[in-house]
Design a binder for these strands. Structure first.
Length: 301
DNA sequence: GTCCAGGATACTG
DNA sequence: CAGTATCATGGA
């Protein structure tokens, strides 16, 4: 990844297919989001690196991604980690030419790659966040899922106040591993969701599960390990593979959002069934995660 | 009031 | 095994 340290500013040279504006559309899809903020085409995000809170102000200028540090210039080591984080978050190191080539010949994806040209998967680099956010989203509408997440973050996350704005960090697995079900029931988690979230935190806390461990496995084994955890089914496993492990072939094919997007794109009266979806997806082989992400994007016009 | 949301699990025949 | 009840709440 090519980047330049300009002191109080970092510039990242973006990959060929990249649109910061498109990525912002996806990031701005919910006004209930508490983990980042968008103002005047600038993205604000609080991260913790080497035990230090760092506020990032991410923008776009002269064909470069720019990172500024409103809380002051960090050390070079931290800057390096910041660049690594941004690459992970925006999936900057992936060569998308294969996806665009396949999609240009695909009846479903064809129009999407033109409309959303340069969109990349916006990931969730933290495994605990990816897993538990997915669990919160099971079976309920996204709006309520965001309500749950907001309560979860504001009860158990760390925050910092800067010039009247509050920025939050997602709760750590260490903190959540110590909770009992009651603590989350109070936030209107179902008993099961509370158990799943705490169980996941404990699985990570005991070292049974880690991003490092998963990232070294192929897609099939990743799914196997994830599904082994209580509360993680195929949908959640593939969601996490897609958003955290950046597995190209991850494919949450039972996802309701995917079904609704396909229904709209194809002008169907009812949602497509799994056989129809598998048939369409056979053409996406190796790029299922990007196909899914572009379809999700089509839901946020 | 009814139905469905970015599902997973335990139970039943 | 495949089908079914259950979870719990909000929004259309």
């Amino acid at each position: 990844m090519q980047w330049r340290d300009q002191g109080t500013l970092i510039e990242i040279v973006p990959p060929k297919e990249f649109s910061f504006r498109e990525c912002l559309v996806f990031l701005g899809r919910s006004n209930q989001e508490v983990l980042h903020r968008i103002q005047n085409q600038q993205l604000f995000k609080l991260v913790k690196i080497m035990n230090e809170l760092i506020l990032l102000k991410i923008g776009w200028k002269n064909h470069r991604m720019t990172i500024e540090f409103p809380m002051g210039e960090p050390t070079w080591l931290i800057k390096e980690e910041v660049v690594h984080y941004i690459c992970n978050w925006f999936d900057l190191e992936r060569d998308l030419s294969g996806f665009y080539e396949m999609a240009s010949k695909d009846t479903v994806l064809q129009s999407l790659i033109t409309k959303y040209d340069g969109l990349r998967i916006i990931g969730i680099p933290d495994l605990f966040e990816a897993l538990t956010w997915a669990i919160m989203g099971q079976q309920i509408n996204l709006s309520f899922a965001y309500t749950l997440k907001k309560r979860f973050v504001e009860h158990f996350g760390e925050k910092i106040d800067i010039e009247g704005d509050t920025f939050w960090l997602y709760p750590t697995f260490e903190a959540i591993a110590l909770l009992e079900v009651d603590a989350l029931r109070k936030l209107q988690f179902t008993t099961r969701k509370a158990e799943y979230v705490i169980g996941t935190a404990r699985a990570i806390a005991t070292g049974k599960l880690s991003k490092q461990l998963l990232i070294e496995l192929d897609a099939e084994l990743q799914q196997e390990v994830l599904v082994n955890i209580k509360g993680i089914g195929p949908w959640t496993a593939h969601y996490v593979m897609m958003k955290c492990l950046l597995t190209q072939s991850a494919f949450p094919m039972t996802d309701v959002g995917l079904h609704l997007a396909l229904k709209a794109q194809l002008g169907l009266d009812v949602k497509p069934d799994l056989d129809e979806i598998k048939k369409m997806a056979s053409n996406w082989s190796g790029w299922e995660a990007y196909a899914t992400f572009y379809l999700w994007r089509s839901l946020y016009e």
